[in-house]
Simulated scan of single mutants.
Amino acid sequence: MTTTYAALLRGINVGGHRKLPMADLRTLMEGLGYGAVRTHLQSGQAVFTTGDGDETSLAATLERAIEGHFGFTVDVIVRDHAYLRAIVDDCPFPAAELEPRQLHVTYYSAPVDAARFADVDQPAHLPEEFRLGDRALYLYAPDGLGRSKLAEQLARPRLTKGLIATARNWNTVLKLAELTSPQP
């Protein structure tokens, strides 16, 4: 059985560093035997199909292939359509009432619990807020991510220690769920 996945690459094509052209990424992934490979934007999203492996092994395979081909390491998280759709459906904020730039999801490589974020003083950051989901953190930043003091605090290494974490804006979250949806 073939499953459609999204690969989320962390920290590529930002500020001229770790340049990874999407056409080259597509070619690399096709060379790994993945089907229906498509990329979205230049910031590291690829959609593909395969009948082999699971999210963890697919991410590890892609990380090794990128390092071998491009000469630098890139953290990768792979998620299937059911997960990506659940992220959209389970959003604790009124996404339809917000501007997409106000809502972000940080995807984690493993589950995170509230204890990890216990010392984050949420009331001090209001009206900004965050909520935890399944291997994800939803962030409401009314003035956008670039001005968010809460986002800055949530990205501190001590809160992400031992995890891969990569954030996407709400438009990209929606697009990934759409791109991975089963095709008729």
Rank of each mutant, 00 (worst) to 15 (best):
T2P: 12
T3E: 08
T4S: 14
A6N: 08
A6T: 06
A7N: 12
R10W: 07
G11K: 07
I12P: 02
I12C: 13
H17W: 00
H17V: 08
H17N: 14
R18I: 01
R18W: 03
M22A: 01
D24G: 12
T27K: 05
T27N: 02
L28T: 05
G33M: 05
G35C: 06
A36Q: 10
R38K: 13
R38L: 13
T39C: 13
Q42N: 14
S43G: 12
G44H: 08
G44T: 08
Q45G: 09
Q45N: 13
A46V: 06
A46L: 01
A46K: 08
T49S: 15
T49W: 10
T50H: 11
G51L: 01
D52M: 10
G53Y: 14
E55S: 15
S57N: 04
A59W: 00
A59F: 01
A60H: 02
T61A: 15
L62N: 12
L62C: 14
L62M: 15
E63C: 12
E63K: 14
E63Y: 11
I66S: 15
H69G: 04
F72S: 06
F72I: 05
F72E: 09
V74S: 09
D75T: 03
D75P: 05
D75N: 10
V76G: 12
D80A: 12
H81P: 03
A82I: 02
A82G: 03
Y83D: 07
L84H: 08
A86I: 00
I87A: 02
V88F: 09
D89N: 02
C91T: 00
F93A: 11
P94H: 07
A95K: 00
A95Y: 04
A96S: 15
E97M: 14
E97V: 01
L98Y: 08
Q102W: 06
V105D: 04
V105Y: 01
V105I: 03
V105H: 05
T106M: 09
Y107A: 03
Y108S: 03
P111Q: 14
P111N: 15
V112H: 04
V112E: 04
A115V: 03
A115Y: 00
R116P: 00
F117E: 06
D119C: 11
V120G: 08
P123F: 13
P123A: 15
H125D: 04
E128H: 06
E129P: 00
R131M: 04
R131K: 09
R135Q: 12
A136W: 05
L137E: 04
Y138F: 13
L139G: 10
L139Y: 06
G144V: 02
G146R: 01
G146Q: 01
S148P: 01
K149H: 07
L150P: 13
A151I: 03
A151M: 07
A151N: 15
A151Y: 10
A155N: 12
R156H: 13
R158A: 14
T160Q: 06
K161T: 13
K161P: 02
G162T: 04
T166P: 10
A167G: 13
R168P: 13
R168W: 11
N169A: 10
N169K: 07
N171L: 06
V173M: 10
L174S: 06
L174I: 10
L176F: 10
A177D: 09
E178P: 09
T180R: 03
Q183H: 10
